[in-house]
């Protein structure tokens, strides 16, 4: 496991803007989902999210990483999952990176909830949760090379 942090500071007019980035890299085992959630919890709290939203962030990242472990890597624990977190002024971004199989987001997004429930091992329920929680979700899929899920949540948005 490798965990590193770095912070960049700058000034625009009279207002200081800070952007902090954190990286956690873990073996691709579901056992590490707990560690991943602890990482997200600490960073979410540092970014100013309340307890309820921190748990939502934990859930979104957990779902993304569980999908990587189960589907991109077929539950093989010999690979790595990288979680990058970036705190900006009023938002937090997460990037989940793997080198596994990848998937077609469009195929999952077309399924309705009933289909997702029946096909619960597809990972579609997790993606539905991620989309419900985060304000923006983007994928860059290059199967076998590099897959990246980028998601963002604004600090000031408090969903019901």
């Amino acid at each position: 496991m490798r965990c590193s942090t770095k912070a960049r500071g700058g000034r625009i007019s009279a207002v200081a803007q800070f952007e902090k980035s954190f990286t956690l890299q873990v073996p691709s085992s579901t056992q590490n989902l707990a560690l991943i959630r602890e990482f997200v919890s600490a960073i979410g709290a540092q970014a100013g999210f309340d307890e309820k939203d921190v748990m939502r962030l934990q859930l979104a990242v957990d779902e993304a990483c569980a999908n990587v472990i189960e589907h991109a890597y077929d539950l093989e624990a010999t690979h790595e999952v990288t979680i990058r977190a970036l705190i900006d002024d009023d938002l937090i971004r997460f990037e989940i990176v793997d080198q596994g199989k990848g998937f077609d987001p469009a195929r999952i997004e077309e399924q309705n909830l009933d289909a997702l429930i029946r096909d619960r091992r597809s990972g579609g329920l997790g993606l539905r949760l991620i989309r419900s929680i985060m304000d923006d979700v983007q994928y860059q899929i290059v199967p076998g090379e590099k897959n990246e899920l980028r998601m963002m949540k604004r600090l000031k948005k408090h969903t019901a």
């Binding site: 569980a66 997790g126 949760l129």
Partner: peptide, 9 residues
Amino acid sequence: SYISSAGLG
């Protein structure tokens, strides 16, 4: 304390 889609499933 926590449930994800795997638990809901």
